[in-house]
């Protein structure tokens, strides 16, 4: 087991092992996502208040979960890279940022579309949407900093610091936005579903959540493989790989 992790730490073995996982992950992700969408779009009952418009929840809620989850993963991987000088952790951290930003963006867009029939407007300064927007800014900051520093190892280490600072701040930002929201909005925003969600709605939601997680792992591995190739482009194993293909 220890040997397995040690091997995974070396770029060459990571490239090979991740490559062998990708087809399986892709298949599992596709099956779960199709099943979840079918359950969510067809099987789950119509909501008595919102009609069918609530069904966007099956995309929106897992995206919002992923947006936060990926930020935490990014900060944790960045910290591992900083502390133990593990290059692979740096690669995972930096490969996660655009994926996390995409999920955050997806959560914002779907939230806004969901909001139109619910609130009658495309944008409401709702606590959760506002927090999501700030999270998007945090992601964009991480990506901008990575892009601005020429030396990619320095860039990875600098963004790791930023991600860790961000992760310490996220709970504070979240709490302050909640506080701000209750003062300025009042309890006008009704929260649907949460306490008494129908089991036929809950199952597709959870299935979609797992499918999104698999999707993230799939894409992060693909991106990390590319990043490893680029970083190691002068290594012998990469040259051999290119010549063989």
């Amino acid at each position: 087991m220890l040997r397995f992790f040690h091997q995974l730490g070396s770029p060459k073995h990571f490239y090979r092992i991740a490559g062998s996982w990708i087809p399986w992950l892709a298949a599992a992700c596709a099956v779960l996502m199709l099943y979840g969408l079918y359950q969510g779009m067809v099987v789950a009952p119509t909501d008595y208040q919102q009609g069918d418009s609530y069904r966007i929840m099956f995309i929106h809620v897992p995206s919002a979960w992923m947006s936060l989850f990926i930020y935490v993963v990014m900060a944790a991987a960045g910290a591992i890279g900083l502390i133990w000088h593990m290059k692979l952790a740096e690669v995972i951290a930096i490969s996660s940022a655009p994926i996390g930003a995409s999920f955050t963006f997806l959560a914002l867009i779907t939230g806004s579309i969901w909001g139109k029939p619910m609130w009658g407007t495309w944008w409401v300064w709702d606590a959760r949407l506002t927090s999501e927007l700030i999270l998007l800014f945090l992601y964009l900051g991480v990506m901008a900093l990575y892009g601005a520093i020429d030396d990619k190892r320095t860039a990875a280490r600098a963004t790791a610091i930023l991600a860790i600072v961000g992760v310490v701040n996220i709970p504070i930002i979240h709490y302050s936005v909640e506080w701000w929201n209750t003062l300025h909005q009042g309890p006008t925003v009704t929260k649907f579903g949460a306490p008494s969600i129908d089991i036929r709605m809950l199952i597709p939601l959870l299935v979609m959540a797992v499918a999104f997680k698999l999707f993230y792992v799939l894409v992060v591995l693909m991106r990390a493989r590319l990043e490893v190739l680029e970083r190691e482009r002068n290594a012998r194993w990469v040259r051999e790989l290119v010549e063989a293909s």
Binding site: I134, L138, G141, N169, Y175, W179, W180, L183
Partner: peptide
Amino acid sequence: ILSLLVLPLYIPVLIFAAD
């Protein structure tokens, strides 16, 4: 870039102080 990094982190201070 500095403003992009720093301004989101300033939000809690802004909220509590202005309120």
